[in-house]
Amino acid sequence: MQTNPSTSLKLLAPIASFFAHETTDPQAVARCFSEGAVVLDEGHEHQGRAAIAAWNAAVVAKYKFTTEPLTAETIGDRTTVTARVAGSFPSSPAQLRLQFTVTGDLITRLEIAP
């Protein structure tokens, strides 16, 4: 399991760190987020660093996936990354849209959608 961030994409530091650690270190992923941050994924909300670390560990164990960010667009405090995700889930590989809200040096919200 690994993430392959494209070297040609210019990602904000917390987003680049998220992709660098998303399949290997749930605690490092959680540190990319503010204390009260929210992740929305598969119809569930995960709030706070402990919940985000638990969410990340669970999805890595369940789907054994790799991620390749393909495009990134930043408008204001929101960055939308389109990524190719492959793993042990129906319709793999798939393109997902990850919409990050960044405040200062931390992610405050992440919404993951097809």
Rank of each mutant, 00 (worst) to 15 (best):
M1C: 08
Q2F: 02
N4M: 06
N4A: 06
P5W: 13
S6Y: 07
T7G: 10
S8G: 13
S8M: 06
L9T: 10
K10E: 15
L12V: 11
L12F: 10
P14G: 06
P14R: 00
I15E: 02
I15P: 14
S17H: 11
F18M: 03
A20T: 13
A20G: 13
H21M: 07
T23K: 02
T24Q: 12
T24P: 13
D25E: 08
D25R: 06
P26Y: 03
V29I: 07
R31G: 05
F33A: 03
F33W: 09
S34V: 07
G36Y: 08
G36T: 08
G36S: 07
A37S: 09
A37V: 14
V38S: 02
V38E: 00
V38G: 03
V38L: 05
V38K: 03
V39M: 07
V39G: 01
V39N: 10
L40D: 02
L40I: 15
D41A: 04
D41Q: 05
E42M: 12
E42W: 15
G43K: 13
H44K: 11
H44I: 11
E45R: 01
E45D: 04
E45W: 12
E45V: 12
H46E: 14
H46V: 04
H46F: 10
G48N: 09
A50F: 06
A50H: 15
A50L: 08
I52C: 07
I52Y: 11
A53Q: 12
A53P: 11
A54Y: 09
W55F: 08
N56T: 15
N56E: 15
A57Y: 12
A57R: 15
A57F: 15
A58S: 15
A58W: 13
V59M: 04
V60Y: 04
K62R: 11
Y63L: 01
Y63A: 00
Y63I: 00
Y63N: 04
K64R: 14
F65L: 06
F65V: 00
F65C: 00
T66E: 11
T67I: 07
T67M: 03
T67W: 00
E68F: 11
E68G: 14
P69H: 03
P69E: 01
P69Y: 00
L70Q: 13
L70W: 10
L70G: 13
T71A: 06
A72M: 09
A72S: 14
T74D: 05
T74E: 09
G76E: 09
G76V: 12
D77S: 09
D77Q: 09
R78F: 12
R78Q: 12
R78Y: 12
T79Q: 04
T80N: 10
A83D: 04
A83E: 08
A83Q: 05
R84P: 08
V85M: 08
A86E: 04
S88K: 03
F89Q: 02
F89D: 02
P90N: 01
S92N: 06
S92L: 00
P93H: 02
P93I: 08
P93M: 03
P93Y: 04
P93R: 01
A94V: 14
A94I: 14
Q95C: 07
Q95T: 07
L96G: 02
R97T: 07
R97F: 08
L98Q: 06
Q99D: 15
F100N: 01
F100K: 04
T101W: 06
T101C: 00
V102W: 05
V102G: 05
D105H: 11
L106E: 10
L106W: 10
I107A: 03
T108L: 00
R109E: 06
L110R: 01
E111T: 14
A113Y: 10
P114A: 06
P114I: 05
